[in-house]
Amino acid sequence: MINKSFWYADWSFPIICGLLSAGIFAGTHTFYVYGIGAFNEIAFVAMLKSGMTTGDYGAVAAFSASFLFARVIEGSLVGILDIGGALQTGIGLGVPALLLAGGYTLPVENFFAALATGLILGALIGLIIILIRKFTVNSGGSTFGADVMMGAGNASGRFLGPMIILSAMVASIPIGTGSLLGALLFYIWKKPITGGAILGAMIFGGIFPIL
């Protein structure tokens, strides 16, 4: 009963996100210092390595930060957090790249600072997802069968598009309509519909906010 109360409680999700992010950020620290240990896809790590060589972290920062933003919105709507995009890419590459580009090297160079930075950022992300979900999808009294959980990955995340559309429709009719139109446009452009569904829901959610 104690375990169930922890795993199913809202307050436990930010803690789990924080612990995961602490390990991921520490992995980036070991890669930055020793050249090994990053928890990410090889192609993405190569972008960080290029920034370490040239001093230009713009590409990896923009790419990874956009992943983080999209996956946080996706997690809020669907109830499934894509660890690969949000934490491994966003926290593990995007945030370190932004810090290094700004000249703040301590959180990446020092192991304990890396752990603390990852823990705090991960907990904040988990808290943001819980709050967004509580005041949007869950405000209607339905989770559409999905409480917030960890899962998916950069590859499998593309199949969450239909769930995003359905969850957006549960939130409100305008947001659902925007999500559907966004997914349709991305399908016509032969792009993954997940991105279109998220952008459409965000745009229509801004125009027609949930009261």
Rank of each mutant, 00 (worst) to 15 (best):
S21F: 02
W11C: 09
N138W: 10
G94P: 13
L160Y: 00
D56L: 06
G176L: 03
A65N: 08
I36V: 13
S139M: 13
F204G: 07
D56F: 01
I80C: 09
G51W: 00
A183D: 11
M1V: 03
A59P: 01
M47G: 09
I125T: 08
P174Y: 11
F31A: 10
G18P: 05
T136V: 09
M163C: 04
G94C: 13
G84L: 11
L20C: 04
F63I: 04
G126M: 11
G79Q: 07
Y57D: 04
I83G: 13
I207E: 08
A43G: 07
Y104I: 15
G182K: 08
L99Y: 08
G176P: 12
P162F: 03
A65T: 14
G92T: 06
P162K: 01
P192H: 03
I130M: 12
A113H: 04
T53R: 00
I80F: 03
S21D: 11
L68W: 02
S5V: 02
V108T: 10
A26H: 04
V78Y: 01
L119P: 05
F144L: 14
S172A: 15
L68T: 05
S76Y: 04
C17I: 04
L98I: 15
V95D: 13
A46S: 13
V95S: 06
L68C: 14
L124Y: 06
T30C: 11
V78S: 15
L199C: 12
M163R: 07
E41W: 05
P162W: 00
I24N: 06
A62C: 08
P162L: 14
S167D: 08
I73Y: 07
R71S: 11
Y8Q: 14
F159Q: 14
S142Y: 08
T136R: 03
H29C: 13
G151K: 01
I42F: 10
L77S: 09
S66K: 01
A43F: 05
V148G: 07
T143I: 05
L160E: 12
Y32M: 05
L19T: 02
I173W: 12
T53Q: 02
A26M: 10
T143V: 03
G200A: 11
G153E: 14
T30P: 01
N110P: 12
I42Q: 14
M47A: 12
G103V: 14
G75F: 09
A22F: 08
G90V: 11
R158S: 13
G141W: 11
K4Y: 12
S64K: 12
K49Y: 01
I91D: 08
R158D: 09
D10R: 09
F13P: 11
L180G: 05
M47T: 06
